[in-house]
């Protein structure tokens, strides 16, 4: 396992190739997935995604509702987890255009002044942050003319700004629209496969961060973002 500094300080300003080579030197990036689903036995999307994440080496999955059923979040434990990982991901259904309550509680408690921001608060500096969510409405609803009026990325601006204040790089959300009918319409398997590819690419450092930054969502065209390993190493040799 690389030292905390090696992982935490992989600078965002590096080119993807530089970042990748750094990842190679220090080993793979470590991904922390914080699952928040208050009703896991009814979950059709987040459950399979969590199960897939658990199977990937280098990915830590934390089921927040299971670990803190009374919302009694252990601040020290959570901060230590953040420090031990390079990439932080919230995995959750979209509740009222935001996260389920425990993730808000998690933010309120764990992202302390002096730890995540403010004087001496540099623990998260340089890490990657993104949200992987399932939304009930169809894609058409999440636009200025739709009934939700904003895109998901726009709705999640509080998270984006939180990440920025903490010095993290914010990636657009990995979002599934029309989640309530994804199983029936046969869209789930593809989504979980994309999710697995995304996590592996993040771990291996083969995701084109520069290109991803400005997208409305990460899974619009994953093939475009994930560079094949062979090509990447060819680029490295050149």
């Amino acid at each position: 396992m690389p030292s905390r500094e090696a992982g935490a300080t992989a600078p965002i300003s590096m080119t993807p190739i530089e970042r990748e080579s750094q990842a190679r030197q220090g080993g793979a990036h470590r991904v922390l997935v914080l699952l928040a689903h208050p009703s896991p036995d009814r979950s059709e999307v987040n459950g399979p995604m969590a199960a897939a994440a658990r199977r990937i080496d280098g990915v830590t999955l934390v089921d927040l509702y299971a670990e803190y059923p009374a919302f009694d979040i252990d601040i020290d434990r959570e901060q230590a987890r953040l420090q031990a990982h390079d990439i932080i991901c919230f995995l959750h259904p979209l509740y009222w255009y935001s996260t389920p309550a425990i993730l808000k509680e998690w933010q309120d408690l764990v992202l302390e002044y002096g730890f995540a921001y403010g004087v001496g608060g540099s623990a998260l500096l340089g890490k990657l942050f993104f949200s992987a969510l399932s939304a009930g409405g169809p894609e058409a609803a999440y636009r200025a003319r739709g009934y939700n009026h904003f895109t998901i990325r726009e709705l999640l601006q509080p998270l984006e700004q939180t990440a920025m204040l903490c010095g993290m790089t914010y990636l657009p959300p990995f979002a599934l629209y029309g989640a309530r009918t994804a199983v029936e319409e046969g869209r789930l398997a593809g989504h979980v496969a994309d999710w697995t590819r995304l996590l592996e690419a993040l771990r291996n450092g083969t995701l084109d961060i520069e290109r991803a930054l400005g997208l409305p969502r990460l899974n619009q065209d994953l093939d475009m973002l994930i560079r094949p390993t062979a090509a990447a190493s060819a680029a490295g040799r050149r």
């Binding site: 965002i12 921001y117 403010g118 004087v119 920025m164 204040l165 903490c166 010095g167 790089t169």
Partner: peptide, 8 residues
């Protein structure tokens, strides 16, 4: 007052 723009 001490918070500057820490974002990337």
């Amino acid at each position: 007052e001490k918070l500057d723009d820490g974002g990337a």
